[in-house]
Simulated scan of single mutants.
Amino acid sequence: MSDVLDGVLADLEAQSAELDDHVAGLTDEQWRMPTPAAGWDVATQISHLAWTDEASVAAATDKARWDELVLEAIADPQNVVDSAALDGAKVPPSELLGRWRAGRAALGAALRSVPEGEKIPWYGPPMSPTSMATARFMETWAHSLDVYDALISIGSITGQPEPTDRIVHVAHIGVRTRNFSFAANDLTPPSEEFRVELTSPSGQSWTYGPAEAAQRVTGSAIDFCLLVTQRVNRADTDLVATGTDADQWLDVAQCFAGQPGEGRKAR
């Protein structure tokens, strides 16, 4: 288990470092550039990542602090995430960057300290340290895309960084949250398993589910990951669904917790 956890944490740190490299040199004004997430600028995106890392650390190591966070969520379930992100973004960028870096370092140590077999409480079902690290990777990757879109809009970069096979962690969550996606949209999850066949950025084949399944999804891993994190409209992907249930899944796919998102408009 520790080897698997270490592997996910290494990928998480690499993904975080890539984003860190892009935002560390931004001016204070550029930190306030709007991103595709309504009402969130670059600082808000980083603030959200910092807050979620800190919440993960509290869940794994500090019951009193975790209980406080749960009570805050219960008191304002619809706005707690936005409020925390927006409040955290009010500080100077250098302070916010330091906070995010400290939280990232603390997260790895906290997850490695969880005894074998124990799960960490969370806002949804409890998670293993590896699952928690995988979720943190997914969020870091997804919010990075929003930041990069803001940088593209001002010509700071010419396009999204080339995807790597690290997105396997996002693909994994995307497949595992199939039933959640249906339930979140008040739909009955299908009883049968699906076959998912994806081509990774390096050209590898990633497969999930029984080979003989009638319901199937095929396409590029990057488009699947963009879809399940709702960073692209389905119409702008190369994904192909075979079967009514698989087709419906691609309309509602969502690998992050919370209410169904609005998704992105077709290009």
Rank of each mutant, 00 (worst) to 15 (best):
T158E: 14
E118D: 13
D11R: 14
F224Q: 06
A106N: 11
D146R: 06
A50T: 05
S200P: 11
G25F: 07
I222G: 01
D67M: 07
L26W: 04
G117I: 03
P126N: 07
T158I: 10
A58F: 03
L151N: 04
M132Q: 04
I173H: 06
D165S: 12
A38S: 09
Q215M: 13
V57R: 00
T35S: 11
I120K: 01
S56A: 15
Q248P: 02
P161Q: 09
E116T: 14
V232E: 00
F194T: 05
V232Y: 02
T130A: 13
Q215E: 15
I167F: 05
E192N: 15
G263I: 11
E72Q: 15
D223W: 02
K63M: 07
H48N: 05
G203T: 13
C225A: 15
S153K: 09
D76T: 13
A211S: 15
T207P: 01
A214H: 15
A24I: 11
Y148T: 05
V168W: 04
R264T: 12
A10F: 04
C225K: 06
N179P: 03
H172N: 12
A75Y: 06
P126D: 13
G25I: 09
H143W: 10
E262Q: 11
L198W: 08
V4E: 08
W122V: 02
V8Q: 02
R234Y: 04
L227F: 05
I157N: 08
V240K: 12
R101A: 14
G261W: 06
P201T: 10
S202D: 12
R65I: 07
E193Y: 09
G209F: 15
T237R: 03
I74S: 08
D245A: 15
A257H: 08
L226Y: 04
P189S: 12
A60H: 00
A135D: 00
F194Y: 11
P115I: 04
R112G: 02
E192A: 15
R32F: 03
V240D: 02
R178H: 03
Q160C: 05
L227P: 00
K90C: 06
I152S: 03
V168P: 02
W100D: 07
A58S: 12
D245V: 10
